[in-house]
Design a protein around this nucleic acid. Structure first.
Lengths: 264, 264
DNA sequence: GTCAAGCGTTTGTCCTGACAAACGCCATGC
DNA sequence: GCATGGCGTTTGTCAGGACAAACGCTTGAC
């Protein structure tokens, strides 16, 4: 863009706005795939501002030659960043860093991790950790027979000593052992992963409603106060339902924040 | 899995659970990329149940040979479906269709499209369509000077004759012409796209709060009723902020539904 | 009977090479 | 001055081949 009129002798390519070539290299003895090494370095460069927003990445051919890689490998690296929304490709123009600050593109996150990432030191109080007969709604969500025994975990999550959310989770019986002590020390998803379950996808529904008397009592709100609600059915990679969650959050103390990408 | 002990003479591969080979073909005269043609056919087969959940796709080599394609092309097709969460690959095992029913993975959707897709025939009443000086919050979101003129669109969206949401959108001045008549006939995002803007990403925040007197009046609710709120800053592919929206939804009549994928 | 090693299968990674399509710039013509 | 066509640049698509790594089953040893 700024270098359009120049002759193209042996341009070192892949530069910053300042023409300073970006230090990139790959380690062929490492077990980490080459495209992944490159992707990580590029992502780090974007995050640290060494690749300014709008900066053009040099063309793929030169970049590959400079790194001693083939073009498909370089493309694979860039593609992962494009998928993350960090870069945009334009035919005849090049690949450039996106201007807007992109963060996480909405993962299957747990409240525990969210709070911890925000430096809030979450605390969990397990109100119930037992089995009970499945109601019609729970049975339908988990794909078990109505009235059959299912696992129920009910937790109160707080941050800074104030209650934030009331979490009710139903799980198929015998899926993974859940000890109350562990539930109070970490999040449910971490325990499931540690139990050998590979989470794959989830279907979520986010809404709002007024607090019931019981919820208001536990959450230190007035009855009728607005609450943010989230229902979620989670599947593992074999397609099994592994969890059905019904969560309510204090509207004054929690919002869902996330970044969306437009599918091209 | 079901065919493990068999000798592997000239197995036709890529079958259904019933060993009936799936009809697949590509048209080399079409301008549509080959990998995309294949991806579409596979996705359609999954959706129509011709590829049952859990079914193994034949190995990539044979599949490529059967279609007269190269393996990278077949892989590219499958990869798009894996990215969508429709399939799972396992080394040494194969690629299989995911069990759980996957829908859209949460797009940058507009309320208008959502309602229309649900067959609800949305109606829009434009309450305001004007310019006004930017407040501090709006100025910060849009990246303009505080007090500078910005475009404001305020709309009431209804379905089945009942109000559903109150939508307030601020736009940079002169970005795209917005006629009231067009705003009542379609959604804001469609108009922006039609105006040559390529939407890229958005940062969203979803929460809840009690209705103010004014909101209750417009939405036919009681003051203090729980409302679902959404704030969104939308960027185009050059990184410009193209919209700042503050929406409130009647909690009893609207929830956000979406599907999440776990990043592997 | 149980556990470990071996082996075939399948995906993961990487290479080289080639042509097509879209974009922006420049020169040409009016 | 302005529209238009040509041209170089860059990404998009596709082919064919090669080896490595992970998985599951079978075989063998104890």
């Amino acid at each position: 863009m700024a270098m359009s009129g120049q002759a193209n002798y042996a341009r070192p390519v892949t530069a910053h706005g300042t023409d300073r070539p970006l230090p990139l290299s790959v380690d062929r003895t490492s077990p980490v795939p080459l495209y992944f090494q490159l992707a990580q370095q590029l992502e780090a460069a974007v995050e640290q501002g060494r690749l300014a927003p709008g900066a053009l990445l040099g063309n793929e051919i030169d970049l590959a030659a400079r790194l001693g890689l083939s073009r498909p490998t370089v493309r694979q690296a860039i593609q992962t960043l494009v998928d993350k929304g960090l870069m945009v490709r334009r035919r005849g123009v090049g690949t450039q860093v996106v201007h807007s600050q992109v963060r996480r593109p909405l993962e299957l996150s747990s409240l525990y991790d969210d709070l911890e990432a925000a430096g809030q030191r979450p605390a969990t109080e397990v109100l119930r950790n037992t089995t009970e007969p499945a109601t019609a709604e729970v049975a339908a969500a988990l794909g078990v027979a109505e009235g059959g025994e299912v696992h129920l975990v009910e937790r109160l999550r707080s941050a800074h000593g104030e209650p934030v959310a009331l979490l009710r989770n139903h799980l198929p019986p015998g899926l993974v052992p859940l000890r109350t002590k562990e539930l109070e020390a970490t999040g449910l998803y971490r325990l499931m992963r540690a139990g050998g379950i590979t989470l794959h996808s989830a279907r979520q529904s986010v809404g709002a409603r007024a607090a019931t008397v019981g919820e208001a009592d536990v959450l230190d709100e007035e009855p009728g106060a607005p609450l943010l609600t989230m229902e979620r059915v989670t599947y593992d990679d074999t397609g099994r339902v592994v969890e059905f969650g019904s969560h309510v959050y204090r509207a004054a103390r929690y919002t869902f924040e996330f970044q969306l990408l437009v599918r091209p």
